[in-house]
């Protein structure tokens, strides 16, 4: 390994919980490709569609009435920051899919603003992913994905699509916005899958 003259560590880290190449961030930086959408709640809905036995749609009130969970997770952004112990409230994807049969192994999350990301179903089921609508005890701010965002904390944070409106289930994997631009299809931070080819 070649070292860099005169460079030394300045940040203290909780190394065990930091994936390779990540640093500990106390703020909450933002990554998005364009302006932040501001969809009024009375025009907001969430749906599951595509290769499933039954399509479903929830209005904002119906969505809030679903059983929710409070959870604390670490999040890892591909731009190299990691934030530990972030607190969220959201509805588990398992809850959204309760009683529905899946006919495909992949999904695309479609968001306000046209942003998309692709995921294997097994990465969002089994208690691993939520549609989150509260952060740190407050409503989720628009710049962080409010009113609601996907939250898949064990993958790089671009997979946790902000402003999510629809989960489209598919038989074949179809690349989303960042994935078409060269980001990794799966994005496991512990394997440092940042870009296609990693």
């Amino acid at each position: 390994m070649s070292t860099t003259r005169g460079f030394f560590r300045r940040r203290s880290g909780d190394d065990e919980r930091l994936p390779p190449g990540q640093y500990l961030e106390r703020g909450f930086p933002v990554l998005s490709a364009g302006p932040t959408p501001h969809t009024p709640l009375d025009q907001w809905d969430l749906s599951i569609t595509g290769a499933i036995s039954e399509e479903r749609t929830w209005t904002w009130e119906q969505f809030l009435a679903l059983p929710s969970e409070d959870f604390t997770v670490d999040i890892h952004c591909v731009t190299t920051w990691t934030k530990l112990d972030t607190e969220w409230t959201g509805v588990s994807i398992d809850t959204l899919l309760d009683g529905v049969e899946l006919e495909g192994g992949y999904l695309t999350a479609l968001c306000d603003g046209g942003y998309t990301t692709n995921l294997p179903v097994e990465d969002v089921t089994g208690g691993k992913a939520w549609v989150a609508y509260r952060y740190d005890g407050d409503e989720l701010e628009p710049e962080h994905g409010g009113p609601a965002r996907l939250l898949v904390p064990h993958l790089y944070f671009w997979k946790s699509a902000k402003w999510v409106r629809r989960l489209i289930f598919r038989e074949d994997d179809e690349q989303g916005f960042w994935e078409q631009l060269g980001y990794h299809d799966r994005g496991d931070p512990w394997l440092e899958q940042r870009y296609q080819g990693d």
């Binding site: 390994m1 070649s2 860099t4 030394f8 560590r9 731009t79 190299t80 940042r194």
Partner: peptide, 16 residues
């Protein structure tokens, strides 16, 4: 580009 610096003790930092 992604940039990676390595200290003498092996500590690494990555930035863009």
């Amino acid at each position: 580009v992604d940039v990676r610096l390595t200290a003498d003790d092996g500590y690494q930092a990555q930035r863009r």
